[in-house]
Amino acid sequence: MWYNDLRPDNELTNNRYSLIMLDNKNNYKRLLADKDKKRIITNIVKLREGLLKEIPSKQVDENLLLASWNIKNFGKIKDRTAESLYYIAETINAFDIVALQEINSDISHFKKVLSILGSYWKHTISDITEGNSGNDERFGFLYDSRRVTLSGLSGEIVIPPEILHQHPIISQLKRTPTFTGFESGWQKFSIISIHLHPGEGTNGIDMPTDHQIRKEEVRLLTEVLKKKLARFSSDDRDTVILGDTNLYKEDTDIVQLFHNIGFTESTGLEGKFTNTSLTQIYDRIFFNSRYYFRLNIDENGKQVGGVFNLFNYVYQNTPEVINEYKELMLLHKNDPTTLISDEKFTSYFNRYWKRDQISDHLPVWIEISTNNSNNFLKSKLSKF
């Protein structure tokens, strides 16, 4: 991690150090004052302690930590502070591969996070999905090149016209999914990142409901995947589907479509709320294991994985913490005159401020075993 910007100002008087948090629209003015740095360092220490407690440690030739995170309008929200970018980067650094959704056309914040992470962190990023429904969004993967490499497989999933019904509800997914191949130790697998249609609305007479649109997206996606997986080489057939699926608790019929083509949901994640409000299971991880791919198992027999709630460590919902950000909230809000009491500040902090600073989604993750030598050797022994 690159922490030079967090040095006290008296260490930076002669600009000996390369800095990241500079305002390139205002004569490259530093974005952090000493009081900000003190708060950030204090919170990073707490966040690191939380990550150490909740996320397994990285073990060479033993495991791989895969995460998915929808970072709200990443690049479009201009009031996201330099402070927040440090917390986002620190969280990403706990994993080996992180699939990101909602990266917008402006990737300046994405680049700052990449710079904080350090030179061994690499990335792939898709172009934006054109059209209003695409919302100028793109998908990205960040990965720790000391622990994982690209396998060379990369592409987008587009729905071919021959698999469409005569009168389809949709002709393409709103946001074009991407797939990328990775390799680590014994594991070689592909990851498909998706961001499905949201909502639970009826959308008026003679219009498909949000549920119907989302189900049709998954139906078309699984039709394509069924054919694509059959063509993949044996090395690339172990596949993970992850992202902001926008699947609600009652969307069991949509989940079944994934099951129908051989994908199962990580048991470590099943039923866990993934939005900041802790009310819905929007973000999911499904995998199709055909060869040596497997997830690590905990002492209760569940696959290791979970949801990391970084708001337990930063932007905590306490009067003391909220008071620290009142000045920034007044600058952030379109009409600051409405913030007239502690109750109003608290409401705004929880409903808007912290979600615009970090996200309205929490990162979800799984632990993959990368040491399958015994399984391989035993399978070969049985053939003699």
Rank of each mutant, 00 (worst) to 15 (best):
W2F: 11
D5L: 13
R7D: 11
P8K: 04
N15C: 06
Y17T: 09
L19K: 09
N24Q: 15
N27E: 13
K29Y: 01
L32E: 04
D34W: 10
K35E: 15
D36G: 02
K37N: 01
I41R: 02
T42G: 05
L51S: 11
L52Y: 13
P56R: 01
S57Q: 12
Q59E: 15
L65H: 04
L65T: 02
I77M: 07
K78I: 12
A82C: 12
A82W: 11
S84M: 13
S84D: 11
Y86I: 04
Y87K: 08
Y87R: 08
Y87T: 02
T91E: 05
I92Q: 00
N93D: 08
I97K: 00
A99S: 14
E102A: 04
N104M: 14
S105D: 15
I107E: 10
H109F: 11
H109N: 15
H109Q: 15
K111S: 11
K112T: 07
W121P: 01
K122C: 12
G131H: 12
G134A: 06
D136H: 10
F141H: 13
Y143D: 00
Y143H: 06
D144S: 00
V148Q: 06
T149G: 06
I157M: 03
I157Y: 00
I159Y: 01
P161Q: 10
H165E: 13
H165K: 14
H167L: 12
H167V: 15
P168S: 05
K174L: 11
P177E: 01
K188I: 05
K188N: 08
K188W: 03
F189K: 05
F189N: 08
H197M: 01
N203K: 12
P208L: 03
T209E: 05
H211K: 03
I213L: 08
R214Q: 07
K215A: 05
V218K: 01
R219M: 04
R219F: 10
E223L: 14
V224D: 01
V224R: 07
L225H: 02
K226Y: 08
K227A: 04
K228G: 05
L229N: 04
F232Q: 08
F232Y: 13
D236T: 09
D236S: 14
T239V: 15
I241E: 01
L242Q: 03
G243L: 12
D244Q: 06
N246A: 06
V255D: 03
L257W: 01
F258Q: 03
H259M: 14
F263K: 02
E265Y: 11
T267Y: 05
K272V: 01
K272F: 01
T276C: 10
T279M: 09
I281F: 09
I281G: 00
Y282N: 04
Y282E: 02
F287Y: 15
Y291N: 11
F293G: 00
R294Q: 11
I297W: 05
E299R: 13
G301W: 10
Q303F: 07
V304Y: 02
V304G: 00
V307D: 10
L310A: 02
Y313P: 00
Y315K: 06
N317E: 12
T318H: 06
E324I: 08
L328R: 11
L330K: 15
L331D: 08
K333C: 04
D335T: 13
T337E: 08
T338S: 15
L339G: 06
I340H: 09
S341M: 06
R355C: 10
L362Q: 04
W365L: 07
T370S: 07
S373D: 08
K378S: 10
L381N: 12
S382F: 12
K383R: 11
F384A: 09
